[in-house]
């Protein structure tokens, strides 16, 4: 049976066509998904067969889904996928804000969970912590600087 990798919000599943759900339609978009003895109301919000992207609403929550079929997987396995970037170790701003305090300096050793920078946003101080053990490579911002969401603040290797 063909195996499909499904990305949904921040999760992934490996599913086959045998993992079944039955869908009852109340019109074109309103549905009740029946899984075992559970009935979950929802709706089909967006369908893009070509891109294999779907948006499904279940009990009010919207799930953004991307399906990877076995062919796509093969392409990935053959090495065309992005190689994992070192950038995942960087501390990035989770939202726009203001740099309040920088707690580390280049060359400093940090451990996972150590606070490294304090951002102010939405009337609160948010202390960001290191994701893992490492050494501070670069501090890309300065105190008092306004930063954007996703902006790299501190590089740790």
């Amino acid at each position: 049976m063909d195996n499909y990798k499904i990305w949904i919000n921040d999760h992934t599943y490996d599913l086959t066509g045998a993992d079944i759900v039955s869908i009852e339609y109340n019109g074109e978009k309103e549905i009740v998904a029946v899984v075992g003895n559970r009935r979950l109301p929802g709706s089909i919000v967006e369908v893009n067969y070509k891109k294999k992207e779907y948006v499904v609403e279940i009990l009010g929550r919207f799930y953004h889904i991307r399906i990877q079929n076995p062919y796509d997987r093969l392409i990935d396995d053959m090495g065309y996928a992005k190689r994992s970037s070192k950038g995942s170790e960087d501390i990035k701003a989770p939202m726009p804000g203001l740099v309040l305090e920088i707690l580390v300096s280049p060359g400093q050793e940090v451990s996972k969970g150590d606070p490294v920078i304090v951002l102010e946003a939405m009337k609160m101080e948010n202390m960001l912590k290191s994701h893992h053990d490492g050494i501070v490579k670069n501090v890309s911002v300065s105190k008092g600087l306004a930063v954007e969401k996703g902006q790299v603040l501190i590089e740790i290797e």
């Binding site: 949904i8 599913l15 066509g17 759900v21 559970r38 779907y54």
Partner: peptide
Amino acid sequence: LDRKTAALVALKLYLEQQSQLKLPTQ
């Protein structure tokens, strides 16, 4: 359960459309 159900709904829609369009996945 909600999340897995949503994923299964999407997969089911995809497979249905695929069989309707008779396009190969392979």
